[in-house]
Design a protein around this nucleic acid. Sequence first.
DNA 1: GATGAATGAGGCTTCATTCAT
DNA 2: CATGAATGAAGCCTCATTCAT
Lengths: 211, 211, 211, 211
Amino acid sequence: MARPQSDIDAGRQQLVELAIALIEERGSSAMTMSEIAARAGMSPASFYRYFESKEALIEAVAAHWFQPKVAIMEEVVSSDLPARRKMFEFFARRFALMQAEWERDPLAFATYAELGSENFELVRSYIDLGDHYLAEIIGEAMAEGHFAGLEIDEALSLINQMVNVYVNIGAMAYLMPKLSTDKLARIIDAVFDGLFATDRGAKAISGLRAA
Amino acid sequence: MARPQSDIDAGRQQLVELAIALIEERGSSAMTMSEIAARAGMSPASFYRYFESKEALIEAVAAHWFQPKVAIMEEVVSSDLPARRKMFEFFARRFALMQAEWERDPLAFATYAELGSENFELVRSYIDLGDHYLAEIIGEAMAEGHFAGLEIDEALSLINQMVNVYVNIGAMAYLMPKLSTDKLARIIDAVFDGLFATDRGAKAISGLRAA
Amino acid sequence: MARPQSDIDAGRQQLVELAIALIEERGSSAMTMSEIAARAGMSPASFYRYFESKEALIEAVAAHWFQPKVAIMEEVVSSDLPARRKMFEFFARRFALMQAEWERDPLAFATYAELGSENFELVRSYIDLGDHYLAEIIGEAMAEGHFAGLEIDEALSLINQMVNVYVNIGAMAYLMPKLSTDKLARIIDAVFDGLFATDRGAKAISGLRAA
Amino acid sequence: MARPQSDIDAGRQQLVELAIALIEERGSSAMTMSEIAARAGMSPASFYRYFESKEALIEAVAAHWFQPKVAIMEEVVSSDLPARRKMFEFFARRFALMQAEWERDPLAFATYAELGSENFELVRSYIDLGDHYLAEIIGEAMAEGHFAGLEIDEALSLINQMVNVYVNIGAMAYLMPKLSTDKLARIIDAVFDGLFATDRGAKAISGLRAA
DNA sequence: GATGAATGAGGCTTCATTCAT
DNA sequence: CATGAATGAAGCCTCATTCAT
């Protein structure tokens, strides 16, 4: 009973890995069902025992790619760190992982980015999950007295934007050489030290414009 | 020689515009060579007198899309504004343009983003150009006393990252609803008020790690 | 030998019922061997122990569909009604059954019709059987003085035609909304009151043509 | 200008004829795009210059098949015959044509029937057209005093049913051997002599049932 | 030069049927 | 015996690119 399921699962796993290998070798447009099946030593028809459609395979590839990042988020959020540190780790650990991936194969990384932008619905749920966890951290930070005068959603949105480049695969794909944990740390500091509701220079200019 | 060349250029220009119209109407997957040629009143075969291949056309489309953004950058950089204001305008005006484009047709905007991510070598040169101009502004800002203790490249890199979401089309395509000139203003303020070399909380933690 | 044979029969019966359920749920194009086998809790391979091929299954489905109609015909023919009434019941009862089937699921009904038209050699024997019984009824009617001057075959053929729409599944599939027992009754009346050998208007014209 | 259109038309015409030939040779399931294209000496891809899809080809085949029948209906309806004769010709001439077709190739005829039942929407419009013309004839007949007491729609429905077998291709496909212009003439006579609103035997029985 | 027409190559998907275990 | 697994063969369709005229 468990066996057949796990055989299917094993097959899915293998096909996902082959799809990934193929993508990494030759880009996402090379990811055809025939080629993947051939590499798995099966007929194109057999592929459909494991995945209902090409799209289902892509979903599985995405899930495979995101899985370790999700694990990190969960780990950090449920840890006991203070908020500032927690937020830093929340981004830094995922960044470190993706940076390592990028270093191993920048082109493959870019291909995942492309895959994501072509199948954005698949990516959306992970973004939403990230937002959910980040909001938790922001809540804790506020309880510690940070982000005075900002709504939680406002803070979420601003932080997400400032730090987007350490989260957004599409952006990372071509900015990675310029990204570093140190810089991320500085941005998190700017977030904690520079983000509150009082209007200062630029905000004032922007306010005048709207008038 | 001169005449034919300018005819070729006119043809290229027309084809690019038709390709854009087609993309905006029906998405990038509808951008087939035959359809574009038909709209230009020419045969598919004739298309190849103007562009060597589909890829060559896409390059030209990208150039066409970036041109007004480049114009804005040049205008702002050569203006007489103080550095803080200049940097704000440097990002805000381009953002305003792209926001307007996005509002007119978010799907078309997403299509350009997709086109960019599929052909991002084409995008690289524009990014480099933007970096070049931003470095100039940072230089001016430093002359005015900002970013104490940071190298110009370090500042460039950090600012680019914090503000990336207002520059990166791929990110904008799905974040646009959350972006605003006001928030950009706050980020620029955080840049000018929060970005200098002194180590504080997060940076200290990050420093320990590296040790 | 005896036991296995009856096991085979039970299996065939079950598979036929599952095929029917499947057709009624999802149309004839959904009737794949694998799906039927799966519903029977057997492997596709095992299916072939019961039916030699897909076509053999379809034959069995047709037989199953016709069986109750045959039962009605036999019941009516062997009853003691007078001929006019008997002929009416001969058609009316089967019509009532099929109308009920149609009302329960017109799409399924149409699917049977399609199945029949795609495999109409299978249907032929039932038509022949119906003709046989109808001829008996006509004989009785003639003995009661009806259809003066007509040969039995001639009457059979004419009646079959006039009433075809209450017998032919293909026609019924899309005419059912316009069919009713009342109208059938009127047709049977026209048969008994209007069908005899004397030439009148149209027949005379037709006779001239042939000359 | 006219040329290209007529080239396309010529191609469509040729493909329709080849499709028909193929159907007549090997049944409708043999009608694959590849086979038709091969017979036309073109690649499967080229087929799509002439027809948008398989379905478009089938529509054209149906139109081709129905065209002469429509012509007959129009001719008869606009003629000056008296109503009884007109109705007879309305059915008889079409029947004669289809009978000839059936005699030339009964299997091909059956295949058209199958095609029709698989693509019934295509057939519906021709049925509706026939109803429209028949209603005109019934109107004329009523003006001449026939069908006393019946509504025009009631008469239309009843006549259509009695004569269905001379109109319905699906029914004809396997009844043709028993059909004849003479029998049709008798049915038309039964229509004109036996169809009016007064209740008689069968109708009375049917009435009792409903009570 | 310009083009209408053609197509090779490929993409995704389905399913009746078989065969090693 | 039963079957899980596999697949050959086929189907429909698209499109970048070429070539004879």
